[in-house]
């Protein structure tokens, strides 16, 4: 028995990046905040580039807490969708054509979202990662954390519950 020959790396990367683009580029609010995702294998890091319009306290100055909340919620929902899609992207069940046309299953809906503010957000870029702590057929729990200059000094942490989209059997 011979093992199937692995796909060329550029084919794999092209499909993974198309899936990620399809997930994020269709969310207008992510575009408004200019949020993008850095991918290393299956690991995603959200990137929120600094912009003057994100300031919530001009005296300090500090990022608006709502921006940090939106950033964490987006990172949570994109990571959750990405985790769910991974198998289909890898197997090729979702073709590159489908992905490039933005053909993706519906995104999960946020049921509740809780955020703790740990430090004020400085006027510079922020990063975030999320961990899917449980993903069931109907509900999912996700934790997320945002930081700026120092990964060990998070500016906020959040946890959220999501209603999973119904999928055809």
């Amino acid at each position: 028995m011979s093992r199937a020959r692995p796909e060329p790396v550029q084919v794999v990367k092209q499909r993974r990046d198309a899936a990620l683009r399809a997930l994020t580029e269709r969310i207008p609010y992510a575009g408004y905040l200019a949020i993008s995702f850095d991918r290393r294998g299956d690991e995603l890091t959200g990137v929120l580039p600094y912009d003057d319009k994100l300031i919530g306290n001009p005296m300090l100055p500090a990022l608006h807490g709502g921006v940090t909340a939106a950033f964490l919620e987006l990172t949570a929902v994109v990571t959750l969708s990405w985790t769910g899609l991974w198998e289909e992207v890898e197997s090729g069940a979702l073709s590159l054509d489908d992905l490039e046309r933005g053909q993706l299953p519906r995104v999960p809906k946020t049921i509740d979202f809780t955020i703790d503010y740990l430090r004020s957000g400085l006027p510079r870029d922020a990063y975030a990662r999320a961990i899917v702590t449980r993903s069931g057929r109907r509900y999912a729990s996700v934790r997320a954390e945002a930081w700026q200059d120092n990964r060990t000094r998070p500016i906020a942490q959040a946890h959220a519950h999501f209603l999973m989209p119904l999928r055809e059997a």
Binding site: H64, G66, E73
Partner: peptide, 10 residues
Amino acid sequence: HGGAVSTLMD
């Protein structure tokens, strides 16, 4: 997006 509602609530 929920994030816009978060900003309003905050």
